[in-house]
């Protein structure tokens, strides 16, 4: 088991009165949204691949992922369907760690999942301590309904960017819309600028 570091990660900490992005309401439960059936991915068959713009592939199986340094962090979640959940606690591997040995000049990433889901975002939004492959939630293994065994977590963007059941990230020189970005949802999805739809 690799070392575990704790990090207090939060966008805008609240002290008393709650600060939410525009148009959001607070929820205490953890709604489950999904565009399809929940994949049941066994960890012994799980794999994660980063594919660069030149076609070079970097693979991790479950044991390799869990051997990497993990972080525990606390962050707020903002769903484009307008609920926000504050102070959620996670465990995962920073994308900075996974990208440490990846040579790329690509500007864009397309995350893809077991089950076929995709979402696009600039590569810089995956780096700099802003994104993780998360496998723990609330001190327990991440449940399948919330994206387990592992999901992408990019909490500074609307939650549809945090692909459940993530299987890999493809790096690209040109941006390519993902599952929701291709049908009306904003290409970037910053909750603090309320970037919900193409027209925002």
């Amino acid at each position: 088991m690799a070392g575990l570091v704790s990090r207090g990660f939060s966008g805008r900490r609240r002290t008393g009165d709650v600060k939410l992005p525009p148009g959001q309401y607070l929820t205490e439960d953890f709604p489950v949204l999904s565009s399809g059936p929940t994949p049941q991915v066994r960890t012994e068959r799980w794999e994660f691949t980063i594919t660069t713009e030149t076609g070079a592939e970097h693979h991790w199986d479950w044991a390799a992922l869990r051997a990497l340094p993990a972080e525990r962090f606390t962050t707020d979640l903002h769903c484009v369907t307008k609920w926000s959940k504050l102070g959620t606690t996670w465990e995962g591997v920073s994308l900075d760690t996974l990208f440490a040995g990846v040579e790329t000049t690509a500007g864009y990433a397309l995350a893809h999942s077991y089950g076929g889901y995709t979402t696009n975002l600039p590569l810089e939004d995956l780096l700099g301590g802003k994104a993780w492959i998360a496998f723990g939630y609330g001190g327990k293994d991440l449940a399948a309904e919330h994206g387990g065994p592992a999901r992408l977590l990019v909490p500074h963007l609307y939650l549809w960017k945090s692909a459940k059941w993530v299987r890999g990230i493809r790096l690209m020189n040109a941006d390519t819309p993902g599952f929701w970005e291709g049908v009306g949802y904003h290409n970037y999805g910053d909750p603090w600028r309320e970037q919900r739809y193409w027209s925002d």
Partner: peptide, 24 residues
Amino acid sequence: HAWAPGLVGRCPACGEVVFRLVRA
């Protein structure tokens, strides 16, 4: 699949997406 940011319809035979509808 309606508990999502939009409505997603899937083929009853193969499960692939046949339509997506987003309402703003």
